[in-house]
Nucleic acid binder design. Sequence first.
RNA 1: GCGCGGUUAGCUCAGUGGUAGAGCAUUACCUUGACACGGUAGGGGUCGGAGGUUCGAAACCUCCACCGCGCACCA
Length: 992
Amino acid sequence: MNEIPKAYEPQSVENKWYDFWLKQGCFTADPKSAKPAYSIVIPPPNVTGMLHMGHVLNNTIQDILARKARMDGKEVLWLPGTDHAGIATQVMVEKQLKKEEKKSRHDLGREEFLKRVWVWKEKHGDIIINQLKKLGCSCDWTRERFTMDEDYSRCVQKVFVELYKKNLIYRGKRMVNWCPVSQTALSDEEVEMKPQNGFMYFFKVEVAEAPGTFLTIATTRPETIPGDTAVAVNPKDPRYAHLIGKHIVRPLPAELPRAQKLIPIIGDDHVDFEFGTGVLKVTPAHDKADFDIGTRHKLPLIEVINADGTMNDLAGADLRGLDRFKARKIAVEKLRETEVLVEEKPYENNVGFSQRADVPIEPRLSEQWFLKYPAVEKSKACVHHESDSERVPMADARVSAESLASSGDAPFPNSPMAPSRAAGASDKMRFHPQRWAKVYDHWLTNIQDWCISRQLWWGHRIPVWSATFENETAVAKSLEELRRDFPKFDELAVIRQSGSTFWISTISAEIQEDLEIVHGLEQDPDVLDTWFSSWLWPFATMGWPEPTETLKKFYPTTDLVTGPDIIFFWVARMIMAGYEFMGDAKFALPDAMPFKNVYFTGIIRDKQGRKMSKTLGNSPDPLVLIAQYGADALRFGTMRSAPLGQDVLFDEKDVELGRNFCNKLWNACRFRQMQGGEVQGEIDPQLLTPDDKWILLKLDAAIREVTIALNEYKFSEATAALYKFFWNEYCDWYVEASKASLPRPPAEAAPGDAPIAVPAPNPEVEARKANTLAGIDFVLSHTIRLFHPFVPFITEELWHGMGYVTDLPDNQGGKTIMNAPWPLPFDDDFKGHYGLGDCYLEMTDAKYELVRNGRDLRRAGNIQAAKKVKYVFKPAQPLTPHDAEVIKLLLNAESLEVNADYLPPKGTPVVASPLGELFLPLEGLIDVAAEKIRLGKEIEKIQSEIVKVEQKLANPNFTTKVPPAVLAEHEQRLAEWKTKLAHTQASLDTLG
RNA sequence: GCGCGGUUAGCUCAGUGGUAGAGCAUUACCUUGACACGGUAGGGGUCGGAGGUUCGAAACCUCCACCGCGCACCA
């Protein structure tokens, strides 16, 4: 690391090391490895997507987990890939087609359109993959998968056929959520309820059998009146019960004769008499609840809305052809014209919106494929709940005392490996934070069948072929032919028959071909919901249904990292799929669960707390941030501001902080390099200074804190601990103190000057310097490793640049820091050997406290920070020359006179500490009055603290009930405050 | 309606019963052997409100208020 630049320049460094890692195959998982497995499957981003801050958060966390696991000695598989994202991708290509060629997908036809989508996919599909690489993600790219890869598609078909065989998949005419823009059915999960400001309309209808008697009906959707086939009242409602069985005259369509508009008044418990008028119009074709009422009462259905959201002929002459919202206005006008509109009042109600197209969905009767969810009970039971037998929450995630204790850490231990964060094989799956388990459970308890068919072209086409014959004999004949052509037909295909129509579902490519070509069957035109392929992701990506080595080694996966917004869409369904399809004995798994831990990230919001969105333009481009600050900076900043389970308010300041941090790390290493010398090996315990011992103890604490935080998925805590250790302890105190052991290198002679005489090396000084450098190398080599999962690029650069890479075997970090072992806390042997007693923490803290107070004297004297001043120290106990030197350096003093017999002139500012008194003799420079006021305030504060503690200690309730340790702590605290008071009072007194 | 979060310094947030913390912002001073993407010292909080439990509550319990989210919905 010669000629080190002053500031860290990430751009070239990042590309260099990513290429290196790829070339060395560092990310490639080996299923034959003897190491314990650690695996994650990536939540596949949309193949046409662009990286956004949510991806950054999510994938940084995964990368941290993966890199940490590698350092723990695990065989790591982080399996990447992309999702074909049916609607999103199709819409994108359709838009482009419209823009560039002014054509719709129908103009091209299905086959040609799909070709175009594939072209688009080939062109844009690796954009997001390359963006993930920029971020530093250590995915095993050799195993990258796409949900429409050939083998993946076969998995989807197989799953469909198996579920069809089990009668869990069925076809039916049902009310579905219809998106009039995308013109496809949607699952319940794809519908988002949004409050809308609209109107409640009240209109009256006459009871046919009792002229002059009117009922008033409240509705928000008057345009559906032509589709009404009954009005319903609650049979227990005394106001209306007697009218049940009579009829009313539906007011629309206006042109229909009265006789055709008579609809019955029915009684149904569903009607709430408190709401509206207690009279409900029933539109079975356009409302889910009404459909159910219609079914109960065998009401006819009148469809009045088309698939595209316009009104059809049955809606009447006035509404025909109009968009449903326009039709609503016209319908109201018609009601007003005919004087049946009684009232119209503003009303806010919740309307279901299509998540993708952002328009109100239309409940619509249509023929779709549905899935009865499999393995629901198992999926419910496998997740750990708070109510489960209460072991300490996350007990097995915590680093146990046993596992933290380890063999000495010098230089790099081979084993034992850090404990697995994961629950044991027989344990339940854990959600982090735990509270999501309740949400998950609630959903599973109330699930409805899943509408899995979509009226799209881009996706997995439903593997069902059907034909309708003239009669059943013809059907039988056709089936007979099929069985003849394929001896194994009954094994390979599932047949359903209803009258003279039959459906065949099969995954056999041969049969599929033959069905179409020879037998003239037609494949179902619909495709499957994208999530019907994503739910297989954890095992379909690993070679299922074959019992591959990869599956055997890496399934169940260890951790899943995802957003809570897809807990139903994806997480719950993957769990069900896991139990349904991975339970087979051939996999020889302890459990079929797809993952052992699920970490739910927060949602990234902007500074104002708004969701990131394209329309708001509040979503920063991570690649711009990477170019500006570096990937490490983006990662570190994001992690530092992302607490477990909380939404993250993104602020570019955080990235700036990350950059500053990397720069600090860079410069701390640069300082070490400037001291020269090779990497120092052995540390001589005899030569360690109290400061050296202090920083080693702090390092030990940092290792513990970071390890525990990571094991609990507390990434912001881990980064905070690292930050505190490295910046506040190592840089702010230790580096400055270490300068006392590192003699200033001789200044270089300016050209032309006479050469400067170099003093003869002093062996004692040299030995101490070497030992200090050895300590620094020890601390830095550990620190860099602790940082590596968070900031992989800069740490790799430093690992090599600092020379820590040399002389190590590959599996200890000799090739890359990726394989260096994760630092372990020091054990007793190690501490004993290096004399790391806790007393060094106390002693050194006291020394630094003295320095802090001494610096404060400068301020009191209004002395500029750079001005060198002379201090006098009157020790209370012997002070080593080295400590004196450290104190002098830290005070930035010209000199520190150690004088046990010092008699300060009256008015000399002083601070006292257990180590002794520190004077700053500066006659006339102090603003005595101001200093007196300051000290007076401090005394007041100290006294109030003393009073607080004294009151507690005077309370017999306190002294008798409190644990002895707390009591002792209070007593000690009181003594400390009293000492401080005496010292401060003394300082005040010397001022006269 | 049911459920889940949140409310602590100007801002963003840590803090699971025992001395109120961090980063940013801010004030003053400073280019000191690595770092101005830096250093030193400071200012700033009756921890949303009210009760309760306790020797002791920011933390535990109850109620309330406000903000956010999810689920379910009544037309």
